[in-house]
Design a protein around this nucleic acid. Structure first.
Length: 640
DNA sequence: GTAGGGTTAG
C-alpha cells in the first residue's frame, strides 16, 4: 500500500474528530473511527475506506454489516479481486461473518456476489460451502452464477434441487436466472409447473425468461402461450417474444408482433430493433429494414444493433447500403468486419471480400474462426483454389486459429466446386477430424454439380450411415442420376423415399412488395392475382424467346414428356416471383427475391435474360449465396 | 446482498 492511501484517510479522520467533539454533548455517537468508516463506505473514495480496515482491526473495533456490505459493493465498482480478498479476510478474522440478527449472512452474501462479479466462481462456491446459514439470496446468487457460466448448467439445476431440499423457496430472481438452463421440454415443463404453484407466473422477469426458454427449445407455441396470458407486460417481455420469433426463422410473425407492440403503446429500444432487423434479414424485407434504419440513428454507439443493420443490408443484397454504413460506422469490431467479408463473398464479390480482409488486418482487428469461414467461402465461390489453400494452411500460424470442422468443410467445397473431386475425397480421408454428415453433403453437392454419380453414391452412403433418415442425401443423389438420365437409378431412390413417407420440400420464393411479403410455391397458382401473374410470365417468356431462350428441360428431374417438363419448369417458384416482381417493379429499383432451395439452371438463365429484356436488376438469394442479374449476366459468373 | 430480451457462417 503506498503512502497516498494512508495520508488521505488520516486527514479525513482529523476532520471527523473535530466535528465529533462539537457534537459530543448533544447526542451519543459511535467510535469516531467507525463513524468515519461508515461515511466513507457511503461516499467513497473506495481506497480511503479500504485503508481504514487495518486501523479498525488494531483498535479492536467491529464495523457494522451495512457498511461492510457497502464497502464490498464499492470494491466491485472500483477495486480489484485482490482488494475483495482482503476485505473477505478482514471480515472473517474479526467476526463480522457471525454478526447476529442476519448481519453476518448479509455480509457473506455480498462477498459471494462479489466473487461472482469478479468471475471467481470457485471462490464464491468455497465461501458458500463454509457458510453456517444460507437464505434465498445466497442460493440464488450461486444458482445464477452457475447458470451463466459456460458448461455448468447442470450444476445450476442440481443446486436448485439442493436448495429446495434445504427448505428454501425459490423466488422470482431464482427462476428468472435458472430458466435458461432447461435443456429439455420435460425439465422446462416441470419448472413451469412449480412456477405456477408458487404463484410467480405473473412476474414480468419470470415471464420473459419463460418465453425465452420455450423459444430456445424451438417451442414457438409454448412461448406464444405464455405471452398471450400476459396481463401486465413490459418492453422486455415484448422483446423476448419478438426475438424468439425472429431467431426461429418466423420473420413475418416477428414483424407482426412488432406492429402489435407499437399499437400497445410501447416504443422500441435497441433490443427490439435488433430482433426486428434480424426478421427483415431472414425475409429480405429491405423496405421495412430501411425504415428501421431511421430508428437506429438514435443509437449510434450500439455496435450490436449496427452489426445487425449491416447484416440486413448484406443479406438483402444491397451492398451499396452495406458499404456506406460500414464506412460510416464509428466503431467496427470483428463481427462488423466478418459480416462485411461474408456479405461481399455471398454476393459474388470475392475479390473485394479478400481486400476487406486485408484492410481488417491492417486496422489491427484480429480475425476469428468465423472471419476465416468467410474468407474461405470467398475463395471457394470464386474458384480461387490457390488462395483458399494458402489461407487454410497458414491460418493457425498467422492468426492462431486452428482449422475446425467448418473450415475443413469450406475446403471440401473449394475443391469440389472447382471440379477437383478426387482431391476433395482425398482431403476428407486425410483430415484429422472424423468426417461428419455436413462434410459428406458438401462433397455430394459438388458431385451433383459435376455430374459424378459414382462418387455421389459413395458420399450419400456415408451420410446415410450417420443419418439413416436423411432425405437431402437421397434427393441430391437421385437428382444426380436424373441429370445423367439414369432414370432407373433415380426412380429406385424416389420409390424408396415414397415408401418411407418422405416428401421433397417444395420450392418456395418470397418477394416484398409494398412492405408485404408474398410467397410463391412451385406449381401453385393459388395467389389471388395468379391470372395476371401467368399472363405476365407469358409476356416475359415471349420477350426472352426473342433473345434465344429455350426452356432447359434437363433441369426437370423426372422422366416426363417434354411438354410436361416445360410446364413444371415454367411454374418454378422463382419464376412466379420474378413475374410478380416485374408487375410491381418500381422504377430503378431492383427486384429482390429469396428462395428456400438452390436456384435451378433454367431459372438462372431465365433471370439473366429477363434482366436484359426488362432492363431490371434482379437479385435472388438462395440458402447459400446471392445472384445479382444485370443486363443478361449474373454476379456468380454462372458458378454456384 | 439475488433476476429477464439483441449481432457474424453453414
Amino acid at each position: 500500500m503506498n503512502s497516498l492511501f494512508k495520508r488521505l484517510p488520516r486527514n479525513r479522520l482529523a476532520a471527523t474528530r473535530r466535528s465529533s467533539r462539537r457534537l459530543h454533548h448533544t447526542q451519543p455517537h459511535p467510535h469516531p473511527l467507525l463513524a468515519t468508516f461508515s461515511r466513507l463506505c457511503v461516499e467513497g473514495p473506495f481506497r480511503a475506506a479500504l485503508a481504514l480496515l487495518p486501523d479498525l482491526a488494531s483498535a479492536g473495533l467491529r464495523a457494522d454489516p451495512v457498511s461492510l456490505t457497502r464497502l464490498v459493493k464499492l470494491c466491485v465498482r472500483h477495486g480489484t479481486a485482490s482488494d475483495g480478498r482482503l476485505i473477505h479476510r478482514h471480515v472473517a478474522d474479526h467476526g463480522a461473518l457471525s454478526h447476529g440478527g442476519g448481519g453476518g449472512l448479509f455480509v457473506s452474501n455480498s462477498l459471494v456476489s462479489m466473487y461472482v462479479k469478479f468471475g471467481l466462481l470457485d471462490d464464491a462456491l468455497r465461501l458458500f460451502d463454509g457458510m453456517p446459514e444460507r437464505n434465498v439470496v445466497t442460493w440464488t446468487t450461486v444458482v445464477a452464477a452457475l447458470a451463466n457460466a459456460d458448461g455448468r448448467k447442470d450444476e445450476a439445476l442440481r443446486f436448485l434441487v439442493a436448495m429446495r431440499r434445504d427448505g428454501v423457496v425459490p423466488n422470482a430472481y431464482t427462476f428468472s436466472s435458472v430458466l435458461g438452463t432447461c435443456g429439455t421440454p420435460g425439465v422446462l415443463a416441470a419448472m413451469h409447473a412449480s412456477i405456477v404453484k408458487v404463484g410467480l407466473d405473473s412476474d414480468v422477469f419470470v415471464r420473459s425468461s419463460l418465453i425465452d426458454a420455450y423459444m430456445k427449445l424451438g417451442d414457438l407455441d409454448g412461448g406464444r402461450g405464455v405471452f398471450d396470458e400476459m396481463v401486465t407486460g413490459d418492453l422486455v417481455v415484448w422483446n423476448s417474444i419478438i426475438a424468439g420469433f425472429a431467431q426461429s426463422g418466423d420473420g413475418a410473425g416477428a414483424i407482426e408482433l412488432f406492429v402489435r407492440m407499437k399499437d400497445a403503446g410501447f416504443s422500441a429500444n435497441q433490443g427490439t430493433l435488433t430482433s426486428v432487423l434480424r426478421a427483415c434479414t431472414g425475409m429480405v424485407m429491405l423496405a421495412v429494414g430501411r425504415q428501421v434504419h431511421a430508428h437506429v440513428l438514435k443509437y449510434e454507439k450500439d455496435l450490436i444493433l449496427h452489426n445487425a443493420l449491416l447484416d440486413m443490408y448484406c443479406k438483402c443484397g444491397s451492398l451499396q447500403d452495406a458499404d456506406a454504413l460500414f464506412r460510416r460506422m464509428p466503431q467496427r469490431d470483428v463481427i462488423s468486419w466478418s459480416t462485411m467479408i461474408s456479405g461481399l463473398a455471398q454476393n459474388g464479390r470475392s475479390t473485394e471480400a479478400l481486400r476487406v480482409f486485408d484492410l481488417m488486418k491492417s486496422a489491427g482487428v484480429a480475425p476469428n474462426r468465423i472471419t476465416l469461414v468467410g474468407v474461405l467461402f470467398a475463395c471457394s465461390h470464386a474458384g480461387l483454389v490457390e488462395d483458399g489453400w494458402y489461407y487454410f494452411k497458414s491460418m493457425e500460424k498467422l492468426f492462431g486459429i486452428r482449422p475446425e470442422r467448418e473450415h475443413h468443410n469450406c475446403m471440401v467445397d473449394l475443391l469440389g466446386r472447382a471440379g477437383k473431386l478426387n482431391e476433395a475425397v482425398e482431403f476428407i480421408h486425410e483430415m484429422s477430424l472424423d468426417p461428419d454428415s455436413v462434410i459428406w453433403r458438401t462433397l455430394l453437392g459438388a458431385c451433383r454439380m459435376h455430374k459424378n454419380a459414382n462418387l455421389a453414391a459413395y458420399a450419400a452412403r456415408e451420410i446415410l450411415k450417420l443419418e439413416p433418415d436423411d432425405q437431402g442425401a437421397r434427393v441430391l443423389l437421385s437428382n444426380t442420376y436424373a441429370d445423367l438420365r439414369q432414370w432407373t437409378d433415380a426412380e429406385k431412390l424416389w420409390k424408396a423415399m415414397r415408401d418411407r413417407g418422405m416428401k421433397k420440400e417444395p420450392g418456395r420464393s418470397w418477394i416484398e412488395v409494398e412492405k408485404q411479403v408474398h410467397v410463391f410455391i412451385a406449381g401453385d397458382l393459388s395467389h389471388p392475382s395468379s391470372d395476371s401473374i401467368v399472363q405476365e410470365l407469358n409476356r416475359l417468356i415471349g420477350r426472352i424467346n426473342a433473345l434465344g431462350y429455350v426452356p432447359q428441360t434437363e433441369f426437370v428431374l423426372q422422366d416426363l414428356a417434354t411438354e410436361q417438363k416445360e410446364d413444371l419448369l415454367k411454374y418454378h417458384s422463382e419464376k412466379l416471383a420474378i413475374a410478380f416482381g416485374t408487375m410491381h417493379a418500381m422504377l430503378g429499383k431492383p427486384i429482390r427475391i429469396m428462395k428456400n432451395l438452390r436456384i435451378c439452371g433454367d431459372c438462372h438463365a431465365f433471370a439473366k435474360l429477363v434482366s436484359k429484356s426488362e432492363g431490371k436488376v434482379i437479385i435472388i438469394r438462395d440458402p447459400v449465396r446471392f445472384h445479382h442479374f444485370l443486363d443478361g449476366a449474373c454476379s456468380c459468373g454462372d458458378y454456384w
